Simulated assay, not measured.
Amino acid sequence: MPNTLIFVDLASDDPSAAGRFYAELFGWQNDARPEGVYHRMVPGGFFLNKDGSESAIGNLHLGIFDAANARPHPDPAGVGPRTLSTDGRKPRIWILIGDDDSADRILAAAEKLGATILWRDHYWSEFNGYNHAFADPWGNEIVLWGKAGENPQIPDSFTRE
């Protein structure tokens, strides 16, 4: 059995606010464990099979931790650094746009909630998908992915690679 990815965490200097941001933006459950220290974002539902039916595999969760004292750690005071990373590249989180949602709605809502739009309307042929990106109010980069499907009709306004 291979080692399995089970969770990805985002840093925030206000996990409660970040939990509210993602709950409002994507409709995810904001599971504070405990409030303000660590928030587990639960999208609900299951990965789909090729025929569209739900598989037995639940959708992945996302964690939000307090950059001032990332838990868990053996020392109750945690370990440094204790601030958000502001320079250089950081991990990116990819979110598949649901069939009943749109990049335009998500980007507009993200911007209204304090996010910065990084780019929009790009087609990546290697993985046959439309993508758009924003930085949340804590500097975490979120890439939205839209399935292009068979024989995609890429709008002329989209950049491509």
Rank of each mutant, 00 (worst) to 15 (best):
D31I: 04
A103M: 14
L96I: 10
I64Q: 03
H39I: 13
A103K: 01
Y22F: 10
D156V: 09
I106Y: 01
V37H: 12
A18E: 06
S16K: 15
D121F: 08
L144W: 01
P72H: 15
N128Q: 12
P74D: 13
I95N: 00
G19P: 04
E24C: 02
I95Q: 03
Y123C: 07
H132F: 02
A108P: 04
S12G: 02
F127V: 13
P137D: 04
W119S: 01
A32V: 07
D9H: 12
G27N: 06
E35N: 08
P34W: 13
E126C: 02
E150M: 04
D51C: 05
P81T: 10
R160M: 02
R92Y: 02
G44N: 05
I64M: 10
D101K: 13
T83R: 14
S55E: 02
R120Y: 00
D156K: 15
N69E: 11
W94D: 09
A148P: 00
F127E: 03
H73P: 00
F46V: 05
E150Y: 08
A56E: 09
G63P: 10
D136T: 03
G78A: 08
A18S: 11
G139R: 11
R89Q: 05
I154W: 09
P137Y: 03
S102L: 11
I57H: 15
A32R: 12
R120E: 01
